[in-house]
Nucleic acid binder design. Structure first.
Lengths: 220, 220
DNA sequence: ATATATTTTTAGGCAACTCTAAATTTTTTC
DNA sequence: GAAAAAATTTAGAGTTGCCTAAAAATATAT
């Protein structure tokens, strides 16, 4: 009755695609998320459904059951704690840790996770600003806005990113943008919605809407 | 051409059963080591042989090729480094880490291993006293003797264990025996070869031959 | 040196997870 | 509200790693 690496990945991806409201996830979305074919997804959905980890009715998409949700949160907790470890303890860049954490998240010892969390100081957010559920599955709350939704004149701090891909994170690195940076939105260009921002009171920079849509901020 | 979790386990076990002289390992020994049946072992040996990771001739046992040996050492390096991490960094007992390290050893990033080693201070020995190969596969040398081979009157330090199972390690914990302890062999009982030893100049203790055969020591 | 015991391999098969191709259901469009 | 398009499921099959039962090779013993 243990759950395989593959099953765990499905639960995690269903959770991520399902959002906080627990919306139905489609077979095709899962095929894309798992990099497999839709037919393979259907097979796995039957299996997860038999194990009562998901609610599945043919052609209707899936949601996690309570048990499935708990398992998903456990895996997400592990993934994010390992990311903190890789960045804070081992000195990896935030653009390098996703794939390694993807493997580490399936190591199955509860005691390991709890000790790791304690060693790291029970962090609430990972290196990309994503919340880390506690051992009971409670997510720290944090209502962030996208930088693209901030009005001219507002002063905000960068709290997270929505795009976790290496190219985006490296672009931020090259621009000198990192978590915790303080921004003042000086001007928003009417034509392309790019923003002129003052970073940490020292440097001004243009940020395209493409980028600002993927930056999460909090009012200062 | 990547190697699976299972293949890696075979290489590691072949290495461990093969000893430093690279002696042939039998199918049955592998069946025992992998907790599978001999027929399954034969299947896997064919596969590893095709990949040129082992030298295999039917009915003749197997040895590692140079490539196989390098891979095995890499896995052993990872296993032992993770054990150091679990004990030194996370505070696990030396009797608790084997199974977790057994999983962690298959995480595949070279950069991860190197950074982990650096973070731990490039340790040469794991919590059980086993040598940790460096990134090139060189084993630190250490010629230890078994405590059971030490003569009356000698003074030695405990450097490692041969039995890695939880019950043995817990027995040592309860007896107050740990790596680095200094022993003076006061007396060896003729009848059952048990030894009366003085530990760290403060405490005397009887050690059965069963135990002393599994303790590795070095002359002081 | 031959019979017996042991070890190892072959043969055939099962479970997990994947695939392609074809069939079915749902959604969209006119 | 059909017909066309898109999404999903079924059918049949491949790979990996495991199994049992039976056959073949090697080792042991008298």
């Amino acid at each position: 009755m243990a759950n395989s690496f593959t099953e765990e990945n499905y639960l995690k991806i269903i959770h991520n695609l399902s959002g906080s409201e627990g919306v139905e996830v489609s077979t095709n979305a899962l095929a894309e998320g798992t990099s497999t074919r839709a037919a393979s997804v259907t097979d796995m959905l039957k299996k997860l459904s038999e194990k009562e980890l998901i609610n599945y009715k043919k052609y209707q998409g899936v949601t996690l059951t309570e048990t499935g949700e708990k398992l998903a949160l456990k895996i997400i907790r592990k993934h994010r704690l390992w990311e903190v470890f890789l960045v804070d303890t081992l000195g990896f860049g935030w653009d390098e840790v996703h794939d390694i954490a993807e493997e580490l998240e399936h190591i199955p010892s509860d005691r390991l996770v709890d000790r790791l969390a304690a060693f790291l100081g029970n962090p609430q957010f990972d290196p990309h600003g994503d919340p880390i559920p506690d051992a009971k599955g409670n997510m720290p709350t944090a209502d962030y806005r996208k930088l693209s939704e901030v009005a001219e004149g507002e002063r905000v701090a960068i709290m997270g990113v929505l795009d976790h891909e290496t190219p985006f994170l490296q672009h931020l690195d090259r621009s000198g943008i990192m978590l915790g940076c303080r921004l003042e939105v000086k001007e928003i260009n009417d034509y392309d919605k790019s923003a002129l921002v003052l970073i940490d009171e020292v440097k001004t920079l243009f940020i395209s809407q493409e980028v600002s849509k993927n930056l999460l901020v909090q009012r200062l």
